[in-house]
């Protein structure tokens, strides 16, 4: 399972590195969305608003939706599913691999956007850095959940529009946990508690994915 996971993750990341979609499409979108959220707050509030952690995670959720779609598009190219089925790869490994690749992409984007939050939304550098472990875990959970929902929405009619409908209700608790832990890191509060909640969500989604991904990919 682990070997398959590494193979699939390496394959997805290699495709991403060659296509540069992350660099030239997703990242600029994230930066633009962060700037727009600053504008939406208004010039007077953007620099010192308690809403900064929530806006950061909202942007990350939007970015994640783009990336999940992208991750499914890779699988949707002609013959990919058939060849994966022919190779007899363990579906749990495929799930873990795709989730890992997505998580790596989200982590990279997440770090860039954290720097953006420091610059644009004026979040304190120390607090932002101490939020990093919780950001890593929450984005990991987002990747695991997203991979599962991506598989659910792929292949049918309008997967790009179906994905947000399916995944946003499941992303809501992750958004809450992420926002609270980031807020706790910036303004004080129960940082560890929210970090653990994100960790449990990550474990839960990984477990569900390992169990059910095979059922979704079954033909």
């Amino acid at each position: 399972m682990i070997r398959v996971a590494w193979l699939v993750a390496a394959k997805d990341l290699r495709i991403e590195r060659r296509s540069r979609v992350l660099l030239w499409q997703v990242l600029p979108f994230g930066v633009m969305a962060l700037l727009l959220s600053g504008l939406a707050l208004g010039a007077a509030h953007a620099g010192h608003s308690n809403a900064a952690p929530g806006l950061y995670y909202l942007v990350m959720v939007l970015v994640a939706l783009l990336m999940i779609n992208r991750s499914q598009v890779i699988e949707g190219s002609p013959g990919t599913r058939a060849s994966v089925a022919t190779l007899g790869l363990d579906p749990a490994g495929v799930f873990l691999g795709k989730a890992l690749a997505l998580a790596v992409e989200l982590w990279l984007t997440g770090v860039v956007l954290l720097a953006g939050a420091v610059l644009v939304l004026h979040t304190a550098l120390g607090g932002t850095l101490s939020a990093l472990p919780s950001v890593v875990v929450t984005l990991g959970a987002l990747a695991a959940a997203g991979t599962l929902y991506g598989a659910l929405s792929g292949g049918g009619q309008g997967p790009a529009t179906l994905l947000p409908v399916l995944s946003l209700p499941a992303f809501a608790p992750l958004l809450i946990a992420g926002e609270r832990s980031f807020s706790a890191a910036l303004y004080g509060g129960a940082l560890l508690q929210w970090w653990v909640i994100s960790l449990v969500a990550l474990v839960a989604y990984l477990a569900i994915g390992i169990l059910l991904y095979g059922v979704l990919e079954e033909s």
Binding site: V196, I197, V200, V203, A204, A207, I208, I210, L211
Partner: peptide
């Protein structure tokens, strides 16, 4: 195994 991990996570929480 996975179900046990899931249950432990929820119970821990």
């Amino acid at each position: 195994g996975v179900l046990v991990v899931l249950a432990l996570a929820v119970l821990g929480l």
